[in-house]
Design a protein around this nucleic acid. Sequence first.
RNA 1: GGGCGCGUAGCUCAAUUGGUUAGAGUACCGGACUGUCGAUCCGGUGGUUGCGGGUUCGAGUCCCGUCGCGCUCGCCA
Length: 598
Amino acid sequence: MEAIETRYRTQTCGQLRLSDVGKTVKLAGWVHSYRDHGGLVFVDLRDRDGITQLVFDPDTCGQQAHEESRRLRSEFVISITGKVTARSAEALNKKLPTGEIEVHVQSLELLSGAATPPFTPDQHESVNEERRLEYRYIDLRRPDMSQTLRTRYRVSKIMRDYLGERGFWEIETPFLTKSTPEGSRDFIVPSRLVPGSFYALPQSPQLFKQILMVGGVDKYMQIVRCFRDEDPRADRQAEFTQLDVEMSFIDMENIISIIEGLLRTIWKQILGVEIPDPIPHMDYDVAVNRYGTDRPDLRFGMELKDVTDLGHATDFGVFKSAPMVKCIRVPGGAKLTRKETDALADWSKGFGAKGLAVTKVTAGSLDTGIAKFLASIAPKLIERMEAHEGDLLCFAADQPAVVHKVLGELRLKMARDLKLEPSTPWAWVWVVNFPLLDWDGEEKKWNAVHHPFTSPRDEDMANLSSRDQAVLSAMKSKAYDIVLNGYELGGGSIRIHRMDVQQEIFSILGISSEQQKLRFGFLLDALKFGAPPHGGLALGLDRIIMLLRGTSNIRDVIAFPKTQSGADLMCGSPSELDDKQLRETHIRLSMPAKPAAT
RNA sequence: GGGCGCGUAGCUCAAUUGGUUAGAGUACCGGACUGUCGAUCCGGUGGUUGCGGGUUCGAGUCCCGUCGCGCUCGCCA
């Protein structure tokens, strides 16, 4: 960082080198640490650019400044004038980029004192995240956090530059918008001017960007906040940021190639890493069947293999009666103890499984666990699983959804627990050919797998009038997800641009024509007045930064994140409103009465 | 809403598994020190063991409740 010269500084704390020796400079920043030797005081001065050692020597700074320097404490904010001096050979600090020089202070100005901080930004020991969130302004001074903010800025700049050069316009869409009960729960905002009415914060700008296409914008992008009122996870926050993209007169491969180019540029510029060209595609069905999920982590093998036929041939009741039996081979898993494999079975119940059967592979045979039930099929099983001595075979037998969930999660757990070596640091894949629709057996209705505006494949268009469960289940959409190391970085689709098709989809989803008009009338109207074929995608900016920075905690890549209960521990949100605000927005609370304070 | 884990000095952790006055490092305060760089040396302050209740002769430790934080299932078109 080049400093902009001000009354407080001429350079930054990360800038000075041997070539600057002899210059008189001004530096400003925080007291990172101080070492008081009585007659001589050293201060490490820090700004976001680095750390520079200051020397307070009464001979150069005078008695008064020297006395003042002895009263400096952690995180005081100061500005100094001084002379850049080469350090002697014994005094070099190889840990600092500025370690070949130091600044001999001539004058000191205290800009702000600081109370004793609850923790310091020195990163010597990890601090409770609750404290970090409460005192975020101190946490953000840590070089790690500073570096993350910088990476985040650089990535968003690359996104704007890359897409801007290709004719995309960044256009803002409303935050105060209309609630649509589909999808995730909305955050709602009361209207003061229209009593009893509410806005919703956008789950994504989906409909606005489609309408921009109808509006002839042709190429749109926006780095935009989205809001979903659902419980957070390690990689999920109620409020998050997307790179939202939409283009007209395209098909799937056009948007895929644009986004690949963007990701390639980001990984190259931020990490110096090359991304495969092209990124391989995988059918949704293949992903689910082989990896148990639509966002497979391809850094590890342990593919799910169907052994339903072998399972049915055993005398093992659980296997004989199960609709599906699948197996994964965990290399080296035989070293797990009985206690550990029992724990796996318990763990699997968290995903709806009744249990998890395991057996260890010995030289040409099976031992322990359910080995005795498998004796008759052992050779075929070992052959199909390509199993070797020392492997662990893990079986799930249940409905397909449960089998896939359990074994899909087990793969990842085994990779973590056994610290398996990834086959590549970055495993990219486009997941394509998603089903269009998903039958909800509980509610007896169809749901859109991606969203209701996703176009069916051309070859499925003819079947839209069908209401046959098998026909509708078999329909595929023009949706695509980009997956990296098991994280869904983003997804999108080619949209429906014909009103009749959109109405047909709504009808399959069980939305009456009255409801269609009420909730999506503006979209149907827009499609009526000449909509170009269009499609796009949204990338999760937070997750991209997580992967670039090597963290699995989304809060680490957001300047002011929220806790799992949706609280901002620094500013204290959410908070109650006073009566006046409630009256103005026509809101009466119906909270259960609080127990009287005693 | 459910499951699991955590909560002890400002911070990071300990406390022989229910037993004396809850310790250590660091930070902080005072003192010494002109080449340190996670400075060093000497001395000192600092605790409602998250909160409330219970069991017990005795609770940081066990039980119940509650609050907060984390991971997770459900949820996330």
